[in-house]
């Protein structure tokens, strides 16, 4: 195989490239097919209709909020899972990662029986005057539930790879544990945290099943972009395709912009692998 000068030995057998190409085509072709189906003259009016813009705005707002919630809840979870062994740790990890493999609709049902009016916590919340069902909060809860594992997995991996040598040194230099976390641990795993947050955001943006089951669908309140697409598909296929493309574009932009390789000198080894 003719390689450009200056490139080294990769150790990849040539046939791997063929399969890799097939894999790439498998992912890209449906996107191409969708793009080909877009009604271009109507594209701008379709995606700038009031309901579309409302849905997009709601999706971005709720996804940002749930990403923040994932960071707040996920960082401590990842730290506990990666750094301090305790009985039942494997079990806890399995449960935290469960939403990764669970059909989202199952997550929605579970959330319903937790935060719903008749739910485990919902009853008490209702008495306290807090109603979650059919509110934007419900959307955020559903998104956080399905997106949290992405952050935890990503960050736990980064924490394990980084090890705790730097933390030990920081402690002997007189830094209290909170200082070590803030000034050493978090900066060291920042690339892992960032990629986890981006994945969480992307997952939140695409959340559909749990939201539909748990939060309902009302314009401006709970009807996020995926729900809008699902509804538009009933009557207006062109609008559904146009909105799908919009969602893909937003997701690609978010992931593409933030999911870059870190600078070599600043990265703890393996943070992105």
């Amino acid at each position: 195989m003719n390689r450009r000068s200056g490139t080294g030995y990769t150790g990849i057998p040539p046939w791997i490239y063929a399969i890799a190409a097939a894999g790439a085509v498998f992912v890209l072709l449906p996107l191409v097919a969708m793009v080909a189906k877009v009604n271009w003259p109507q594209f701008i009016p379709l995606i700038t209709s009031e309901s579309s813009l409302t849905a997009l705005g709601l999706s971005l707002r709720t996804s940002a909020t749930s990403t923040a919630a994932c960071v707040v809840l996920g960082v401590p979870l990842a730290l506990v899972l990666a750094r301090s062994p305790f009985p039942g740790q494997r079990l806890l990890r399995a449960f935290v990662l469960l939403p990764l493999v669970l059909p989202p609709v199952v997550g929605g049902i579970a959330l319903l029986y937790t935060f719903g009016r008749q739910g485990l916590l919902g009853r008490s919340l209702e008495m306290a005057g807090i109603q979650i069902a059919f509110s934007t909060t419900a959307v955020v809860l559903a998104q956080t539930f399905v997106a949290l594992p992405f952050l935890v997995v990503s960050l736990e991996g980064a924490l394990r790879t980084a090890g705790n040598k730097y933390e030990a040194v920081a402690a002997t230099l007189g830094a209290r544990p909170s200082t070590v976390l803030r000034r050493v641990t978090i900066p060291l795993v920042l690339p892992g945290l960032a990629s986890g947050a981006v994945l969480s955001f992307a997952r939140s943006l695409g959340e559909f099943g749990a939201t539909l089951t748990f939060a309902g669908s009302l314009q401006g309140v709970t009807r996020t972009l995926p729900l809008e697409i699902y509804l538009q598909r009933e009557t207006d296929a062109d609008a559904a395709v146009a909105l799908s493309l919009l969602l893909v574009a937003v997701a690609v932009a978010v992931v593409g912009l933030s999911y870059r390789r870190p600078r070599v000198d600043a990265a703890p080894e393996g943070a992105f692998r």
Binding site: K165, Y166, G174, P177
Partner: peptide
């Protein structure tokens, strides 16, 4: 706890915090 002992540790590897400049490492 380690941070209250006043026993600084210098290891085989320098283990300088990679995200901080040399100056900020020493100022840590």
């Amino acid at each position: 706890a380690p941070h209250t002992r006043g026993t600084a540790l210098l290891a085989q590897e320098a283990l300088l915090f990679p995200h901080l400049s040399a100056l900020d490492n020493v100022a840590f």
